[in-house]
Design a protein around this nucleic acid. Sequence first.
DNA 1: CGAATGACCAAGC
DNA 2: GGCTTGGCCATTC
Length: 111
Amino acid sequence: MLQSPEGKTFQKIYQIVRRVPAGRVVTYGQIASALGTRQLARTVGWAMRACPDDVPWHRVINSQGAISTPRITGTANLQKALLEAEGVEFRVDGTIDLHLYGCSALVLEDL
DNA sequence: CGAATGACCAAGC
DNA sequence: GGCTTGGCCATTC
């Protein structure tokens, strides 16, 4: 069964991810930082694992600017497609330029 | 309640 | 420059 995303942090993470504008991506560290502690990155991963339909999880990537979903259920293909549909360009390595598509942490904290 | 895991990040060697 | 260790938070067994 799918855990119980009723934790306050879970909802907070979802809120932040929802604030990510289309065509932009954020790293786990940024989300964790928006929550207050960068170390929360791990919990963020758990929250993403629940990946509700209301959360554009495809805009969430790791600090390397690469997709971290392929380790789950071959969702990388879907994520890449969604991001490309939003106008995000992928490098030859399959990574994204955080310098261009990296969203500002201020937007995430703009609760 | 205690131990283990998890889609991570940063620092250390 | 690449690999290893530590750390925090939340969830699960």
